[in-house]
C-alpha cells in the first residue's frame, strides 16, 4: 500500500530569509526550508537535524554552492549537504531527508509522508 502523503502549509513567504534558512515543525519532525532567490528552483527543504551531532540546527547554516551544487554547511562541524539530494559532500554514506516544496500563493507547502501512526489510524 502506498503511504498517503500530504502537502502541509508550513509558513508564509515573508517568513523566509533570502539566501538563508528557517526551521519549521512538521508531522515528520523538524525541517529546514531554504530560499535561494538567485537560483531556479529557489526553494529547498531538508531535515533540520544535523546527522553528525543530532542537534536541530541545519537551518542556521551558511548556504552557497560548491562546484555548482547548492549546499548548506552545518553550523556545528561544517560538513556540507546538498540541498537537492541531501547527500553529505564529505561523507556520501550520510544523507539528509529531503522534502518536495512548493509555493502556493504566498504559502509555502511541504510534501510530508504520512507517519506510521497516521497510516494505521487512517
Amino acid at each position: 500500500m502506498k503511504a498517503r502523503t500530504r502537502w502541509d502549509v508550513v509558513c508564509m513567504v515573508e517568513d523566509l530569509v533570502p539566501e538563508s534558512g528557517i526551521a519549521v515543525w512538521t508531522e515528520d519532525g523538524p525541517v529546514a526550508v531554504f530560499y535561494l532567490p538567485h537560483r531556479l528552483p529557489a526553494l529547498f527543504a531538508v531535515s533540520h537535524t544535523d546527522p553528525f551531532s543530532g542537534a536541530n540546527v541545519l537551518a542556521r547554516g551558511i548556504t552557497g554552492d560548491l562546484k555548482g551544487e547548492p549546499v548548506v554547511a552545518s553550523p556545528l562541524y561544517k560538513q556540507h549537504f546538498s540541498l537537492r539530494t541531501g547527500i553529505c559532500l564529505e561523507d556520501e554514506s550520510v544523507r539528509l531527508k529531503t522534502y518536495p516544496v512548493l509555493l502556493d500563493g504566498n504559502r509555502i507547502r511541504l510534501e510530508i509522508p504520512a507517519t506510521q501512526q497516521q497510516t494505521q489510524a487512517a
Binding site: S20, A55, V57, R60, I62, P75
Partner: peptide, 22 residues
C-alpha cells in the same frame, strides 16, 4: 542588516555561541 544576515556564521547571525546541542 538584511543583506548581511546570510553571510554570517550562525554565531554571528544569532549573536551567541552555538553549543553541541544547538
Amino acid at each position: 542588516a538584511t543583506d548581511h544576515v546570510p553571510l554570517q556564521d550562525t554565531n554571528d547571525t544569532f549573536m551567541a555561541n552555538m553549543q553541541k546541542n544547538g
